[in-house]
Structure formats: C-alpha cells, structure tokens
Design a protein around this nucleic acid. Structure first.
Lengths: 252, 252
DNA sequence: TTTGTAAATTGGTATTACCAATATTTGTTA
DNA sequence: TAACAAATATTGGTAATACCAATTTACAAA
C-alpha cells in the first residue's frame, strides 16, 4: 500500500511563505528594506542560515534583491513571473540564445512549408490582410505596432499549418522573443533599410504560401530568421562597442 | 555620471548556475540523484551552507526536489513542462492525435538530420550501445523494456543534435506519448514482424547518422514515424471491429 | 561646507555540531 | 530459507558561531 506522502514542514519554506505573503499583501512594499538578517532571524525566532535559505529562494523567484553590505530589498517586481516553460528556460540562460535561433529557424521553416501545402482560401485572405497591416506598420514609426504585426503574421502562418501543436509552439516562442526584443533592442526594426528588408522577407513567405510552394516557403522563412539573427548579432556588437567607448570617455 | 553596475560574483549563484546548466544540458538527467551535500560541497570546494543556498534556489525554481534523509534529485520538470499544456488538450480531443503524430514526424526528422551533421564519436558510441539494447529488448517479451529502450534511443538522437531545446522538446513529447498511449496499445510492440520492422527502422536511422547523411537520417526517421502511425491506426481499427462484433453478439 | 577616514552595519562564506527522516544492514524469528 | 524487526549508517534540516567583504554612517579635519 502506498501511503500519501507525508507533508514534512520545512522551516525555510515556512519563512519564505510568510515573507512572500507579506510582500504580496503589501505589508512589505516594493523597494522597502527588510530588517537586517541577524535582527529578522531573531524576530522570527529562527537561525540566520535558515532565514538566509528562505531569502535565497525569494531571490531566485525575483521577489527580493540583496546587496552585500547594503541590505535586502523587496524587488520592484518588474519581472513578471514566467508561466511559460520556454520562457523560464531561456530568459536566464543566455548561453542558449544560439540554440533558440536555430530552433526557431527549423520550426518556422517546417511550419511555412506545411502552410503552403494546406492553407485554405480563408487562411490566404487572412495572411494577405496581415501583410497589409505589416506594410503600414513598417511605414510608420510605432514600434509596438510593428512588433504586434510581426507576431500576428508569424502566428497566422503557424495557424495555416493546421496543426495545433505547431501553432501553440510558435505562439509561445514568439511571445517570449518579442517580449525580449521590446526590452532590449527596441529600435532594431526602426531603421529604414532593415524595415524594408524585413517587409520583403515577410512578403516572400506570403507569396510562397500563396503559390502553394512548400520548398520556397521554407527557404523564405529560413532566410528571414537568418537575417533576424544576423541583425540582432550586429546590433549587439554595436551596443557593446558603444558601451566600451562610453566607459573609456568616463575614464573608468 | 552613471557608472556600470559592479558585478559582485556571488558564490551561491555561481554554484547554482553550474548545477543548472548541467541539468539543462542533460549531464544531470531527470530523476538522477545528486551526491550527498557534504560530498558535493567538498567536490566543488565550497562550504555546505553555500551549496545549500544554491540548492534551495534550484528547489525554488523547481529544478530540484530534495527529501530529508533521502537526497537531492533532479526534477522531471523539463520532461513534462513543455508537453503538459498539450496533454490535456489531446486527451479530450482524439481528433488531434493526427496532429501529434505529424508534429513528432517533423520534429524527429529535423532532429535526426541535425544529429547526422553533428554527432560526435561519443554520441555515435552511445547510439550504437542503445541500438544493442533495443535489439535485445525486441528479442525478449518485456514490453516495458522495449518501450524504455525505444524512448532512450530517440532521446539520444535528439541529444546528438546538440540543441538543448530540441532535446527537451523530444524528451517531453516522448514521455507524453508513452504515458498516454502505452496503456492502450502496448502490445503494438509485441508481435514478431512489427518488432522486426521497428528494429530495422531504428537501425536505418542509426546507420544514416553514423554515415553522416542528414537526408537519409531524416527520411529514415520520417519513415519510422509513418510506420508507427500506420500500425497504430491499424491496431485501433482492429480493436474497434472486435468491439463492434462483441456488442453485436451481446445483443446490444 | 566639503572631504576624507575610521567605525559600525550588513550581507557573504565557512566551520562545526546536532537533529530528524530515510535507507541499509543485520539479526532474529517463524 | 524467507520474512520481519531492530540497529546502524547515511543524508538532508536546523542551529550557533566566527570571520570576511562591501556598504553605509559618523565624525573629524581642511
């Protein structure tokens, strides 16, 4: 007979929950400073190592920020909790960025070719509509609109594949990536020539699907991702160079 | 002037990242047991409290499960998280079974071709070993062993792609499939000719990877999934026919 | 008032000891 | 011999303590 797992109360967990609920309920407001560990430990009637383990858990969750010699502070909660497992995996492991691009390239390539084989007239009309939105967005300067139109188009291609798993997967990936893009390299898409190239590439994908040419659709999709990867890498280098120059000027 | 934030290296963070990357890269597999804290602390050259803080962070992230007196284990979070959203959907909607197989076909095809391009000698040796295990399993009658060997082989191919996202996606998919489907049509593997064909197909995938032939690897992989799909459909029809006959005999 | 230095504060790391839950071994009994 | 139970060893959980390193604060000197 398998009995139910006994619920062993863990001290560090209890402390963590108590602190976390105080943060959530607003007793401890964002930016507030916690009492010193030695003091807080005594107030709670636990040892400092136990309290520290609880605090470390909250740091891992992003609820607390601690600075040596400074103190422990309730975080501003800028970071929303990652409910999506893909996001949770990738956000904090920058070493995986290369894998992510490769992954997206492969997935979107497959999805585009499937869409080319299966898109219904309704799908094609929807895609055409989204291409129009994309064109208007790139003509303007509204970054949020550009990003939204981009996500919508890729999402529509994925849905035209008529496979819910691919549609769901692409949706997860896109939302994660575009949240990242908006945070870090917002003006990547702003510059004219880049926007023009991106629009051409999206149109190439759309045309291939419209022509029901799976091979071309895959190729166009992969070329698009390759370009995005290259541009992002270029932008990252650029920013690093600028930062270095700035530090040099500051005499640091 | 705003100076760059000084990056104070935190020992517990460094330990956490090291352990986490080992988990993500598959060096530490789900269910694996970590060395005892005292031992691991000495191996890493850090104190036990520091190691514990790192472990607590990983527990908070859900990557590790620790049981007092039992040990610290790598959680199966990465095996389940990606497919969990799909699982419920698919259970209730049998019409999506086709999507799942198609998805798997596409993913495994891509993964096999990537493996053929990148597998190291160590990967090849591992695959060869698993092919041997698969052969022995198919010679026997132990369905659980057959299923386990099958999963292990496909997962090893995915790992040989050297892309952790694909590796985790495949792992997640396989676990979902073998949890939901195994019960119903476990004896798919039992019958002699089917087992023989399956073994041949696995060997074909392996050979293509060994020959570093991406195209053949993809083709072999897709042919394998197609056969599995066909056999499953056949078996399902067979069972339905039997059930109908039974109902007729029962006068319902 | 400003500035530089010393002191106090505070988080970070390490050592050690002991407790509690679990796993393993051993010995006894049927 | 097999099954069960007690003893033992292993392992994570908690605690106390000391010292280090970064930060903040206090205060004296310019």
């Amino acid at each position: 007979m398998v009995y139910q797992k006994v619920n062993v109360p863990r001290l560090a967990d209890a402390i963590m929950e108590q602190l976390e609920s105080q943060i959530i309920e607003g007793v401890l407001k964002p930016g507030a400073r916690l009492p010193a560990e030695r003091v807080l430990a005594e107030q709670l009637g636990v040892s400092r190592p136990s309290l520290r383990e609880a605090i470390q858990k909250l740091v891992a969750k992003g609820r607390i920020i601690s600075r040596q010699g400074g103190g422990n502070y309730v975080s501003d909660q800028l970071e929303t909790a990652f409910s999506d497992p893909w996001e949770q995996l990738i956000r904090q492991n920058t070493a995986l960025h290369g894998d992510v691009l490769e992954f997206r390239r492969a997935i979107e390539g497959v999805v585009a070719s499937m869409a080319a084989e299966r898109a219904t007239d309704a799908d094609l009309a929807h895609l055409k509509d989204l291409i129009g939105k994309l064109r208007r967005a790139y003509e303007g300067e509204d970054l949020a609109a550009q990003s939204a139109a981009d996500v919508a188009f890729h999402q529509a291609v994925a849905e035209a594949s008529h496979n819910v798993l691919f549609a769901h997967l692409v949706s997860s990936l896109l939302h994660m990536l575009h949240k990242n893009i908006e945070d870090n390299i917002a003006n990547l898409f702003a510059s004219g020539p880049v926007a023009g190239t991106l629009l051409e590439q999206h149109e190439a994908v759309w045309q291939a699907i419209e022509n029901r040419d799976p091979v071309a659709a895959r190729a166009a999709s992969e070329a698009h991702i390759d370009f995005v990867a290259k541009t992002m890498a270029h932008f990252r280098d650029e920013r690093e160079r600028r930062d270095r120059a700035q530090r040099r000027l500051a005499g640091v």
